[in-house]
């Protein structure tokens, strides 16, 4: 069998989830081709253990994001019966578009995958788990942090392919740069605030804890709906992002069913809420009944003591 992995990039470099995609591909056996859109991170991709070859696909169309143009440039280079991408927004787009151009089905946001193919994925933002069997060549996007990363030490050959592909989507104006902060759906640790934070300016206290932990900052739907300053991109829950970090810290979040759906599969959950009966405590591994005003300064102090040593 041969697998084609579409690499993921962020800020002009190879994203670590790419090694997880290769790890998942390795567990299926066979050769692994990594395609790097725009050539980003192709030499790093070649160093991932288990990679057979790297195709750096370059051309003007990769200067800004145009899903269909990228997919048209990439699709002819796909080899084998399985295309793997990350389940980021771009990864899902490319998996869908490449699958459609190949006339094969796509299955998104998969958290486990076995030969044949059998895949499981959360549905209803994690309120249920679906297991599917796929009886044809296909494209599959994999959720970050669900598969073991392949190590380094690979030495794959890198070939460059130049494509001239018309772009139809032209960026006229950048309105706001992407947040420097890591995205909630990719982070190992997420700290989220709810309406219990009182006002949006108080999210700065969450950011301070996040900086110590290298965490992403998220928010509940109530916080996003109430305060325009908190963007929807931070929203964790059924109409926002589903997250599965190693540690999820919920502060001032009562735990509406939509929110629980989006974060309950986190490995460990720490909840801080002043209401001892808040539903969030029902899914928390560690619950602290306290106001955030009292808890966060102490948490900050102890975390920075622990992590600076």
């Amino acid at each position: 069998m041969s697998v084609t992995v579409i690499s993921e990039s962020s800020n002009g470099a190879l994203h670590p989830v790419t090694a997880q995609l290769v790890g998942a591909a390795s567990s299926l056996g066979g050769s692994i081709t990594v395609i790097c859109p725009g050539g980003v991170g192709s030499s790093d991709a070649a160093n991932i253990a288990g990679v057979t070859k790297v195709i750096s696909v370059e051309g003007d169309c990769f200067e800004s994001y145009d899903c269909v143009a990228w997919s048209k440039a990439i699709s002819p280079l796909v080899e084998g019966d399985l295309v793997l991408s990350s389940s980021s927004a771009v990864g899902r787009d490319l998996a869908s578009s490449i699958a459609a151009s190949m006339g094969v089905p796509v299955v998104q946001d998969v958290t486990s995958l076995t030969e044949g193919f059998s895949a499981t994925r959360p549905i209803f933002s994690g309120k249920a788990i679906e297991e599917v069997g796929i009886s044809s060549p296909c494209a599959i996007s994999l959720r970050a942090n669900s598969f073991e990363s392949a190590g380094d030490g690979g030495n794959a050959e890198v070939s460059s392919v130049n494509v001239s592909q018309d772009i139809t989507v032209a960026v006229k104006q950048a309105l706001a740069k992407a947040s420097e902060r890591i995205d909630v759906s990719e982070a190992d640790i997420v700290i989220s605030g709810g309406r219990g934070m009182g006002e949006p300016a108080n999210f700065s206290h969450l950011e301070e804890v996040a900086d110590i932990l290298g965490a992403a900052v998220g928010a509940s739907r109530a916080a996003v709906d109430t305060w325009g300053e908190i963007p929807h991109s931070m929203q964790v829950g059924q109409t926002g992002k589903t997250v599965t970090p190693n540690l999820y810290i919920a502060v001032g979040i009562s735990g509406a069913i939509q929110h629980l759906a989006g974060m309950r599969s986190s490995k460990f959950i720490l909840a801080i809420n002043k209401d001892a009966d808040a539903p969030i405590f029902g899914v928390a591994d560690y619950g602290i009944v306290s106001t955030w005003e009292e808890a966060l300064p102490v948490l900050k102090e102890h975390l920075s003591d622990l992590l600076s040593n």
Binding site: S135, Y286, V289
Partner: peptide
């Protein structure tokens, strides 16, 4: 080409540990 084999509930979490106050 994609057959749904099963749906299941997410694994139940075992009850967590609860603490009161920032002293904890």
């Amino acid at each position: 080409m994609v057959e749904i084999k099963s749906h299941s509930s997410p694994p139940e979490k075992k009850p967590g540990q609860k603490f009161v106050g920032s002293d904890s």
